[in-house]
Design a protein around this nucleic acid. Structure first.
Lengths: 345, 345
DNA sequence: CTGAAAGCGCTAACAT
DNA sequence: ATGTTAGCGCTTTCAG
C-alpha cells in the first residue's frame, strides 16, 4: 500500500538512534527533550520527510481533526459563502472541512451523516432540508456527534443553531415598502416548506396584519416560467399589487427577468424588493433593493460554535461532572440595502 | 474519548457470539458466511449501532476514502461549481471530499498539501495559483500523492490536468467581434499571471495579429475603480476601442458597471464581450455576450481522472511491473453565448 | 531526560 | 464456515 511506503515514527527513531517515545515527544512540541536529541530527531524527520499518520493518532483516541459540512448545494452562492468562512475557521483550528451536498433530500442527509460517523469526524455543521420526520434529529442525537445547525434549525431538537433573523428581515422589508406608501404588497416565493421561507412569510404576515393590509401570497414561483405566469396574472388583475416582495434569491431573479421581458415598469408600475442580496443587484436597471444576509458570518459563527462545543466535549471527558454550558443559539441580523427598485431616490 | 465509547467490532463479535473475523466478513460484504450467522451478526450490528472505524481500516493499509480539493476560493462561482460536481463524483466513489482554500497563495497551497498528506488523503485535485517557483511541483512529486490539476496545470510537471481551452475560447471571442466589423478591439483583464488569463491573452494576440488589427491590452483591471479609470481613458482616447473583450468574470462586471455609470452606450459606442458566463448576464441591459466555460464538467472530469489514477495506483501495488498508463490531459471546449452587448440581433 | 511495551479497532494470514 | 492472532503507526503509562 502507498501508506506503508511512507516513513513511520519508528523509522525516524531508528535513524536518529532514539526510542519512539522521544520522537513522539518531538512531533508533539518537543517539550521535555534534550536540545541535542531534539535537533537530531528533527534532522531525521527532515531527511525522511516524515509526516505523522493521522489515522494512527485517531485510533489512539485523538480527534480526527476534521469536521463535516452538510449543505443542500455548494454551488449556491449563499452556502458557498458559508462554506468559505467555515473552512477558514476549521483551518484556524487545525482541522479539515469535509463538504457533503444533500440537495435537501433526507436520504442523502442521513447517508452523509453515517459516512461522517464512520470517518469519526469530530463534529458537523448542517443546514437541514425541510424534512417532516424525525429521523435526522434521532440519528444526530443517538450518534452523539457534536453538531451545529446552520441557516435552519433541526426541528424539535436541542441542537444549537446559527440562523439569520428571517422574520425580522421580512418585517424590515415590509415596513420599507409600507413607508413608501404601497398598499397592495405581494409576497412571492418558492420552496415554502423551508424553515427560512416559512419565517419570512410569517414576518410578512405579521407586518401586513399590523398595517391592516391584505395578504397576497404566492408560493409557487420555482422557475422562470412560473414567475412569468405570476406576472401575467398580476397584469390581468383588476386590483394588482403595487409592490412585490420576493423571498429568495432565485425568485427575485426570475421575477425581475419576467417583469423586464413583459415590459412592466419597475418601480413605477410595481415595486420590487428581494430577500437575499446578490452581486449584480446594483448593476441591474433598476438596481434592486434587497435584504442582505450576513452569509459569511453565518458560516463563521456556526463553525466557531462547533469548535467551542468540541472543546467542551473534551473537557467533559476529563471531568465527567462538568456542567454543560447551556445551548447557545445565535440569531444574526440582516440589512436593508436600499437601491432603486423599491422607489427610493 | 468519544470514539472509544462507540461499539467496536469485537463488541459486535461478543454479542453475536462469533469471532471478529466473521464480523469483519459481514461488514465487508458478508461473503463466505453462513446465512444464519450472518443474520445474527447483522442483528448485533443493528442493536449496537455499530459503524466500522475508518481510522483503524486506514491504519491496516486501506485507503482513507477521502480526497482533497484545493481551490483559491470556494465562494468563487467557478470553483463552487467545480466543487459541486467533484463532490458528486467523490460520493459515487464512496469517498469524502475535503475542501481547502488557497487564495492563490503558495504558502497556503504547500501547507494544505502537507495537512492532506498527514491525513493520508487518497489523492487530491488542485487549481494551482500563479506561483513562479517549483516548490509545489516538488512537494507533489516527492509526496507521491496522486494528484490532478484542475483549470490550471502545475507548471513543468507531469501531473495530469483538466482545463478549458482558454486560447480557443479567446479566439472564438475575437473572431466574433472581428466578424461584427470592429477594428479596435481592446483586451482588459486583471491577474495576468494566472495560467488561464495568459492563455486567453495569447488567443487574443494571435487573433489580432492574424487579422492585422492592433493589440490593445490592459491587464490592470482588478476592481471597480481601475475599471472606471480604464473607461475614462477610453473616453478620452482620440482613437478609442470600438469593442472590449474582458478576460474574466469580475473584470466583465466591473467594466459593465463603469460603462453604465459613465453613460457609455453598449454596444453602440463600444461593444462588450466577456469571458466567463454568469447567471445574470442575460438580465442586464444590454444582455452580455460571453464565453461560457463548462465549469461543472471541469470538476467532474478532474475528479473522475483522479479516481481513475487511484485505481491504477492500487493495481500497481499488486503487480509492480504494470505499465502506467500515459498521462491523460483533458481540454474542454467553451461556448460562445450570443446576446446583445456585442451588437448581435 | 529517555525507552520498552501495551493497546487503540481492524484485517488477513493461518489454522481448524 | 469460523476462530486465533499478529500487526498497521502512534501515544502513553511505567520504569529506568
Amino acid at each position: 500500500m502507498r501508506q506503508s511506503r511512507r516513513p513511520t515514527l519508528s523509522d525516524v527513531a531508528k535513524r536518529a538512534g532514539v526510542g519512539t517515545t522521544t520522537v513522539s515527544r518531538v512531533i508533539n512540541g518537543g517539550k521535555l527533550v534534550d536540545p541535542v536529541t531534539l535537533a537530531r530527531v528533527r534532522r531525521a524527520i527532515e531527511a525522511l520527510e516524515y509526516t505523522p499518520n493521522q489515522a494512527a493518532r485517531t485510533l489512539k483516541g485523538a480527534r480526527t481533526r476534521a469536521i463535516g459540512l452538510l449543505v443542500p448545494s455548494i454551488a449556491d452562492p449563499f452556502f458557498a459563502s458559508c462554506a468559505e468562512s467555515a473552512q477558514d475557521v476549521a483551518r484556524r483550528n487545525d482541522s479539515l472541512l469535509t463538504v457533503l451536498t444533500t440537495q435537501n433530500e433526507p436520504r442523502l442527509e442521513l447517508e452523509s451523516i453515517n459516512v461522517l460517523i464512520q470517518h469519526r469526524t469530530d463534529g458537523l455543521i448542517i443546514a437541514p432540508g425541510p424534512s417532516s420526520d424525525s429521523a435526522l434529529r434521532q440519528l444526530l442525537e443517538r450518534a452523539g456527534v457534536p453538531a451545529v445547525a446552520m441557516d435552519r434549525p433541526v426541528p424539535h431538537s436541542s441542537i444549537p443553531y446559527v440562523v439569520a433573523d428571517n422574520r425580522a428581515g421580512a418585517t424590515v422589508a415590509c415596513r420599507h415598502l409600507i413607508d413608501h406608501g404601497y398598499q397592495r404588497i405581494a409576497c412571492w416565493t418558492g420552496e415554502p416548506a423551508l424553515y427560512t421561507i416559512r419565517e419570512r412569510i410569517r414576518g410578512y404576515r405579521q407586518s401586513m396584519k399590523a398595517a391592516g393590509l391584505p395578504l397576497l401570497i404566492d408560493d409557487s414561483i420555482m422557475d422562470y416560467s412560473s414567475a412569468e405566469s405570476a406576472v401575467r396574472r398580476l397584469l390581468a388583475d383588476p386590483a394588482p399589487p403595487d409592490a412585490i416582495l420576493t423571498l429568495k434569491n432565485s425568485t427575485t431573479i426570475y421575477v425581475f427577468e419576467a417583469l423586464q421581458n413583459l415590459g412592466v415598469a419597475v418601480p413605477e408600475r410595481v415595486a420590487l424588493l428581494g430577500y437575499d442580496d446578490f452581486e449584480l443587484a446594483a448593476a441591474l436597471q433598476p438596481s434592486i433593493t434587497t435584504i442582505q444576509q450576513p452569509t459569511a458570518e453565518i458560516g463563521r459563527q456556526a463553525a466557531e460554535l462547533l469548535f467551542e462545543y468540541l472543546e467542551e466535549y473534551l473537557e467533559d471527558i476529563e471531568e465527567r461532572m462538568a456542567i454543560r454550558k447551556p445551548i447557545r443559539n445565535i440569531h444574526l441580523h440582516t440589512a436593508l440595502i436600499q437601491r432603486h427598485s423599491c422607489g427610493c431616490r
